[in-house]
Design a binder for these strands. Sequence first.
DNA 1: CGAGCATAACAAAACGTTTTGGCTCGCGGA
DNA 2: TCCGCGAGCCAAAACGTTTTGTTATGCTCG
Lengths: 343, 343
Amino acid sequence: MSSRRNDRAVGIEDVARAAGVSITTVSHAFSGRGQVAQKTRARILQVAEDLGYAPNRLASSLRTRRSNILGFVSDDIATTPFATRVVLGGQDAAAERDQLLVVVNSNRDAAIELDQLTALMSAQVDGIVYARMFHQEATSLPPQLGRVPTALLDTSDPEGNMPSAVPDEVQIGRLATETLLRAGHTEIAHLTISEPGSARDGRIAGYSAAMQAAGQVPRIVTVPEPADARAGRAAFAEMTQGPAAAATGVFAFNDPMAMGVYQVAVRGGIRVPEELSVVGVDDFEPVAASLLPGLTTVALPHYEMGRWGVETVLAMLDGDEVPHPHRLLRGTLVERESVAPPR
Amino acid sequence: MSSRRNDRAVGIEDVARAAGVSITTVSHAFSGRGQVAQKTRARILQVAEDLGYAPNRLASSLRTRRSNILGFVSDDIATTPFATRVVLGGQDAAAERDQLLVVVNSNRDAAIELDQLTALMSAQVDGIVYARMFHQEATSLPPQLGRVPTALLDTSDPEGNMPSAVPDEVQIGRLATETLLRAGHTEIAHLTISEPGSARDGRIAGYSAAMQAAGQVPRIVTVPEPADARAGRAAFAEMTQGPAAAATGVFAFNDPMAMGVYQVAVRGGIRVPEELSVVGVDDFEPVAASLLPGLTTVALPHYEMGRWGVETVLAMLDGDEVPHPHRLLRGTLVERESVAPPR
DNA sequence: CGAGCATAACAAAACGTTTTGGCTCGCGGA
DNA sequence: TCCGCGAGCCAAAACGTTTTGTTATGCTCG
């Protein structure tokens, strides 16, 4: 009733008529492309404003062959909360550059993924950022990819044609370990999972390197489970029975595992951080900040990855050279209260 | 090198030429609209397939005045993890109906929100689902809204023009309370926040109603803080000092607060669920499932809200009557191990 | 045997922009 | 006085579809 929903929206022609100029001139006034007198331009803009004119992006996309839409496809946005942050980074970068971001997720179903990719292509997206939250390994990428400028997140292109960004897992492992070393710990255990993967392997490598550099012996405890609180409990329990029982510092593969460590520690009367220092990886707020004491942890560069993804695709569209065909993004330390000097 | 990226994409005209028919006939063959002989149709589809033809949605949108794009605007997708689930519900519903969903979020900044709404309108979205994760109160909605079919989530339209859906907070409060009652508890406290809001108020109402119906006296403990683990700790500590000290069951406003209860309980040597039963609200997996013991909690109908949103907008576009102008969505109980009969 | 009628196909207009290639002034210089 | 030129504007062609209105081709029926 209030708004006249059924009226044909006001178009460039209405503005032209109202301003007493041609369509061409209105277009020029907006884009600043041709020659249009200051006075005319001002009048046109005013009229457009009055009429509430907003250019129809569909039409202009059709003509310019540029939709200003980017696709963001992820294999899992639901179960891992980190996905949210990479999407967020992508959205922010897209918004800054006036692009629309269409986020689709396949729930790890290859068939769905293919459908969605075709849907995106059909919608004439200018580019795609493709994120693999789940299996990070460079398994075969969908063939649809690459018909349009594409950037890869959390995975890489076996053929090396597409730019990609992943977290620098080795640096992350080193940073976590060094945090404990710097606090004065010498007996430091790394609790992780047994299933190989670049996150696991890299963090182990970083941990080992840091320990060796400090002249300490690495002690790695693995459990054959998904990396959650239960795994943390199991790993910590196992640690206290083995050669790493004397550890005063624990580097957990991720925050949920660190949470598990807290749980068995508190039950065993072990106080964090007085008797046991722990550091995690993720900075998954609802967990890390809620823990008591707050968990010191290495934040993964998820937001940055998202940004990098759309910025890179945009750069490719502009014809720019992509500076880093494969980029490692650093983790950063978030200090809370779970690390203290050993007694 | 592999794909010819710069070639003009194959269009309907290429298919027509290759199949030896007119553009019109190709279009008909795809849409099933006009009269086209079975044989011709089959040939056209085959040719299209061979050529890898996919219709240009931009062009068809322009012509049909239907973009098949929906906007999903949320005021906060980042900090609340629930947002993810409503977005997911929306995405699934959109994918099923072959719509693209553009998710934008304003981080609670009204100016940004306005920009994004204009961007969406300019992109000719067919409809909008507008979610208010943050302040649920029906504060003034942006005027841009309603120029296009719109559904509201987690808020409602003061003027009653737009359909909306919110969680049935009263039912949720009642369900949580009844879970404890059913287990045999009679002394049940409700830990919540002091700042009014429909979630808080509704859950209090549901709690009180359930208690009264059971002939028990409601005991509500409030703390003036954001509803996180810290608040849970504070509320539980306060509870043990007051008239509710004898409570054997606790209904926490949400999962993080329940987590806080766990924390002070374990420190006080109170065992969950043997000596204390607790139920939360959210079913925020990474917390609820990780807690030890697993938290029994009422899952909010977020995924359903997301679905409802896009389905409702789509129904409006189809000209259907919307059956529930304002809809209450029920929470469902997720049973884990934090509830047991009192001793 | 011709009128009437499906069926199958097509040409052309439209959707709302951008862009190319003019056209028309008015003015300065020769 | 005429030419050349830049500034300012415009008409029309594209972009890739859908849809409207038309035409051609048999067939059926009276």
